[in-house]
Design a protein around this nucleic acid. Structure first.
Lengths: 222, 222
DNA sequence: GGGAACATGTAAGTCGTTACATGATTAG
DNA sequence: CTAATCATGTAACGACTTACATGTTCCC
């Protein structure tokens, strides 16, 4: 990675939510984009200093003691840097999933073991869904007038959709494991065909739900 | 990260597919778990040496020249190490998505810009789905008798489900963007309610598809 | 003979986590 | 008074990417 995204994340938080300390920034990240980004203090504090040195942020409270809270505000320059970065297409990297790798190598573990991993993933996915769902309600309640409302909701929606997908996958994975356990490869293949059939059914159904968005699109064109 | 998973990925590939060179290992990773893991040569080659030094792998062809292909095979010791690792629960890390962050900070970009990012994601998701789908067909054709069949299919299934989720999310994101563009926050909120309604509808429908897997489960119990 | 793909490897440098050190403030 | 939480910061280390250097083999 030629350029770290960390500094821009810090700038973005300060830009959206006003002056914040390193500690507060971390909390805000966890509670907003926490499903898709994280920063450690070991990254945040040195980076804040660097941003301040470059003039992209400035200390908001000049009267801070040595171990006291120091809030930073984004500067005009920082805003420009943030805007410049925001326009660039995102770097996409394959997310590394150790779970996926361990399942792929499942042969070298015991079946109950693999099953347990998937069940853990199921619990994790359910919880992630609840968190995203709660976050969405909170956003609707608190940011109903915010200029970022649509963006915030797109992110909570991503959390919901992805968590739901993870949940659905765990169910399918368990059904395949069951099939393998009970009927070997033949049953596994049969189960895969069932899943494909289920997919075909749901594709047919979901075509209906796009009716509502069509109305919106018409408005945009006029 | 206390312990890298890279060495175990190399061991796993050698364990599943027999002796391979660094170059081949990379190709196999890309074509199998490529959606969920990747390794660079800068990782692979030094790591192979370390694994060989520890006796977890050994060079399969002793007669290799300086710049010739050197294949490695997993040893008994390596297999034990791999099995030990396989049993441990996976470390889970929040996948860092720069796309999500950029959208969250969408206020600082221009709307067409954000839209373009999401449309790129849509294309990427569609392509990922096709790749996963093709991989599944290949697995069904080539590994129908493999002891890992169920595990391989669980991974291709993960690729399909996740790619599909990403696709569905982009559509929703675009509908929210449209709403914001056309009717501001009020329309956005309306659109979110529409999405929730669509969710409720599909939850009701999808309950049916678990009928098939129930049959399998019954078999397992007996 | 030349280009594409195959193939191995190193060096530099960044990125990022973890563990540690330190202290202030608040609630019970 | 003491535990939890708030709060800032550093140091060490490991992981990983990127760019570079080098050479082979195969096919046109």
């Amino acid at each position: 990675m030629r350029e770290s995204t960390t500094p821009y994340v810090l700038l973005g938080i300060l830009g959206l939510f006003g002056p914040k300390s390193g500690y507060e920034i971390r909390a805000v990240i966890d509670q907003s984009v926490g499903h898709f980004w994280s920063e450690s203090f070991g990254q945040i504090y040195p980076q804040l200093r660097r941003l301040a040195d470059k003039g992209l942020i400035r200390q908001a409270d000049e009267d801070a003691g040595p171990r006291e809270r120091r809030r930073f505000a984004i500067t005009e320059q920082g805003l420009e840097a943030l805007e410049g970065w925001s326009r660039q297409p995102p770097r996409r990297a394959i997310p590394r999933s150790e779970l996926a790798v361990k399942i792929f190598f499942g042969r070298f573990a015991e079946l109950p073991n693999v099953r347990f991993m998937i069940e853990s993933e199921l619990r994790s996915a359910k919880q992630a869904f609840e968190v995203a769902d709660a976050g969405e309600l909170l956003t609707l309640a608190e940011d109903a007038d915010d200029a970022s409302l649509a963006y915030f909701l797109i992110i909570t929606e991503l959390g919901r959709v992805l968590a739901d997908a993870r949940r659905r996958w765990t169910e399918r994975a368990l059904s395949l494991l069951d099939a393998a356990d009970a009927g070997g490869n033949r049953a596994v293949i049969e189960q895969i065909h069932d899943l494909r059939a289920a997919d075909a059914r749901s594709t047919r159904t979901s075509g209906r739900s796009s009716r509502k968005s069509r109305a919106k699109k018409k408005e945009t064109r006029t």
